[in-house]
Structures are given as structure tokens and as C-alpha cells.
Design a protein around this nucleic acid. Structure first.
Lengths: 251, 251
DNA sequence: CACTCGATTTCGGTC
DNA sequence: GACCGAAGTCGAGTG
């Protein structure tokens, strides 16, 4: 029979420093912005040193129940089970896990590593600003990431005829929301400057309804090559460190 | 010195049935809709039987690099390392991990469990439809989740005076996007029916800029109690099963 | 399969 | 800490 006391000690001593992996039969509940419950079943529970608490099932990328970074984890013995508690201060949220059978606890020393993702919308905007003729011959950039009362305009410029142009950029297929955003900006500038600007949506693809909305509002569409959306820059992370695994199990 | 061959065999034999947890020093790269790279560092790699592939660091809830459910995983020996490959067919995306030092491999038999989350926007809409007077005395619901060319209207109804009312519901703080959506629907109905409807945004909170946009467009705001956003119904999951943990390590 | 939108969105940036 | 908008968004529902 497993020794819960040892497991509890083990978890406590590694909570702040290691990524903990717990395999246990547990009943889990979440209560906060929403509510959810899991009946007693074997789950994989992962607790990170930053407070992230996750209960994973056998499918999907997202945990079934979780608490975000910054939460605090508590563990204690209970009548016939181990109580695992994760508390987030604000908004108040709590995850409670009753572990009826703890079959594995591992502590893994994982370094903090940031990775830089390349090919984001910001990258595409930057490229377009550097290559204004790609948008249109004679296009001149006035502003980039231009904040207004109704949102941030990706690119504001003038065409060869000197007419104001609002450019909204999407790195993937544009939907109704993107058209909405563009409309918002065009209306705002019309009211603000008394000059009706052109509105151009730039993306590698657009959904049918979004295209319909675009056309019926006199806006324009510029399709960009999919290659442009994965512009490669360079990014990296930190140097290697020695792994220090440690675990506790009875089998 | 660890035996990579055994680790590879172990992974292969559990890929389809277990949640695999691998702790290794690895260099990881992702190439697909975007790109990302991780230098050689100890990471926690989790592979689920549904094809989900995740590389977790010591912080945050989301993996540093991942492939979604439906991806295929391959593992093979390499010169001085173990090559782990995850391929997603469409869109074409691949995650490559070079494991330079495999320190732990665990296979955990996690049952598939669905959990029902309570307190979603859909729950709130349902409650409002059942309690139309909460929106406004004399309010009559005409349609719910009403599809139009510009999107789905949460609730369409008429007020005590017989005037058309569009209701947009948010379960958390409403931002500019919500106002945008509502505006879109109001405009659409005006054009479509030649009748200018009232637009009402319902949420427990609203951001300052969203409220400003709302007012300046003649729309209305109805604040609902936060309690309403966590309406409790009932939900559960499946019965318990026996855990069958299995792992492989050298320490 | 594609489209649409909610999400305990999460996450990063900015004020 | 609040606000704002992107995300390799993910994931569910619908057609």
C-alpha cells in the first residue's frame, strides 16, 4: 500500500523548484469564474513552480481543469486520501483534487526557457511597412500601430493620389471580426477628419461572409502570399543545464 | 549511461494507448503556420494517445511548442540522440525534438473523461431567455442564437412598445469587440428590415472604452449580477477505472 | 471539410 | 493592476 505521507513530503519539498507530475486516481473540482467537476478517475496532474496547476486527461491539448500561473498549491493528508488544493487569489478560483490513489509522483528540474515565435501578425506588419509598394504602388506609410479611440490601426497611409488608407492586417484567414474592425477604423477617421479613407484588408485568405461584408461596405481586399506570413527572423533561448530528475513511486 | 534503444521501444509500445511523459535534454523546433525554436535544455514532453504533442517548460500553462490532437508521432535512434517527430497533416506542421539525454520516460493509463463546464455564456443566454423580464419588463423573446449574414445574434426580441431589440450577451467584462458585434447586428437589421432596433449589451462588467463606444452609438448597457454568470447546473463524468502506471528511467 | 464564435480563453504589451 | 488585442489561439457547434 502506498505511503501518502511520503508522497506529501515529496511534493512539498519540490513545489517551489520543480515541475511536479502526479499520476493518481482523483476526484477534481473547479470553482471560480465558472465551475467544473471530474468524477474519480486516473488523471495526470502537473504543477509548475510558477503556480500553474493542470489536470490532464488522455485527450486534447488543454487541461480538463486548471489554475493559471500565480496560483498557490497546498497538499495535505486526509481521511483515506490526499487533498491537493490550488488557489488563485484574484479572481478567486480554487481547484480541489482528492487523490484516492497516488501511483506516481515525479519532480523534474525544467529550466525556464522563453521561445520567440516567428511569423506573427506583428512580423507581417513590419514587413509591409518596409515594403509599402507591395500594398500598392506609391503607397506611403504615415503611422504604424496607430492608437485611436476605437482601437489600434495596423497601418495608416496615403495612396498615390494622396487619399488616406486604413490597412488592417491578418496573418491567417480573415473573418467577420476583421472586417468589423476595419469598418470601425474607417468610420472613426471619417468622423474625426471629415475625410473618407479607403479601407484595405490584407491577409492570406478571407472567409466568404467576411468578403461579402467587405464588398458591401466598399472596402478592399489584398491577398498576400502565405509565405509572407511565415517570414523567418531569428530567435533562440538559453544555454543548456544539467537535468536533475527525481521521482517517487510504488509499483 | 542510458539505453536509448530501450526508451525508444518503450515509447513505441505505449504511444497509442498511454499518456507518455518524457523528461529529456532536447533541442526542439516547430515549423508550420509559424516557426519557433528551443535551444538544448531539459524539457518535459507529453504525448497523448490522441496525437497531442506538447513540450512544456517550467512556466505558464501553455506548452512552449506543441502539435494538436490528430498529429502523428515518430521516434527513432539517431547519431548521439533520439529523434522525436510529430507531424500534423493539415495544415502541414512539424515538431522535431532531438533528445540528447533521455532521463525519464513514463507511460500513464489515463482514461478519457469529458467534463461539463457550467457558467458559460450559453448558460447565461438560456437563463435570460427563461427570465425575459430581467432584461426589461415586458420584453418578449423572438429568437435565440439567431443567424444572420453578419453573425449570430444572441437574443432578438421586442420591448413593451413593440420595438425590435438586439441583445448581445457576454459572460465576462465586455470590451470594444462586443460593442462592435452589437453595432454590426443593429446595422444589419436596420438595413434588412428598415426598422432601427435598440441594441442592448448585457454583461457583468464593461471596459471604459467599450462603454464610451456604446453610448456614442446610442446603444444601451445592462449590468447583470456576477452570480448570474456562474449559474449552477449539473455535470459529471465517467466511472472510475484502475490505474496502470508504467515507467522507465535510469538514475 | 469549412465557417463562426466562445473561452475559467491565455498571453504579452502598454499605460 | 486594468485595459487592449493577437494567438501557430483551441475547441465546440453547425451546415
Amino acid at each position: 500500500m502506498p505511503n501518502n505521507e511520503d508522497a506529501i513530503k515529496f511534493v512539498r519539498s519540490h513545489l517551489a523548484t520543480h515541475v511536479l507530475v502526479i499520476y493518481a486516481v482523483a476526484r477534481v473540482s473547479y470553482n471560480g469564474r465558472a465551475k467544473a467537476n471530474l468524477d474519480s478517475n486516473p488523471f495526470l496532474i502537473i504543477i509548475k513552480p510558477d503556480g500553474t496547476f493542470m489536470v490532464h486527461g488522455s485527450r486534447r491539448e488543454k487541461p480538463l481543469i486548471w489554475n493559471p500561473p500565480g496560483s498557490r498549491t497546498y497538499i495535505d493528508a486526509q481521511e483515506g486520501s490526499v487533498a491537493l488544493l490550488s488557489i488563485r487569489a484574484s479572481p478567486a478560483e480554487r481547484v480541489m483534487a482528492d487523490l484516492y490513489e497516488v501511483d506516481f509522483v515525479g519532480a523534474f528540474d525544467v529550466e525556464h526557457t522563453d521561445n520567440k515565435v516567428m511569423g506573427t501578425e506583428s512580423d507581417l506588419v513590419a514587413w509591409l511597412v518596409d515594403h509599402p509598394d507591395y500594398i500598392e504602388k506609391g503607397f506611403v506609410v504615415l503611422e504604424r500601430e496607430y492608437d485611436t479611440a476605437v482601437g489600434r490601426i495596423d497601418i495608416l497611409g496615403r495612396d498615390a493620389n494622396g487619399r488616406l488608407v486604413v490597412v488592417e492586417v491578418k496573418r491567417s484567414q480573415a473573418g467577420p471580426d476583421a472586417v468589423n474592425q476595419l469598418l470601425r477604423y474607417v468610420d472613426h477617421l471619417l468622423q474625426r477628419r471629415g475625410e473618407k479613407p479607403r479601407g484595405v484588408l490584407v491577409s492570406p485568405d478571407i472567409s466568404p461572409s467576411a468578403h461579402f461584408m467587405l464588398k458591401s461596405n466598399g472596402l478592399e481586399y489584398l491577398k498576400v502570399s502565405k509565405d509572407l506570413t511565415t517570414l523567418a527572423e531569428k530567435g533562440g533561448s538559453q544555454p543548456s543545464t544539467k537535468p536533475v530528475p527525481d521521482f517517487y513511486s510504488w509499483l
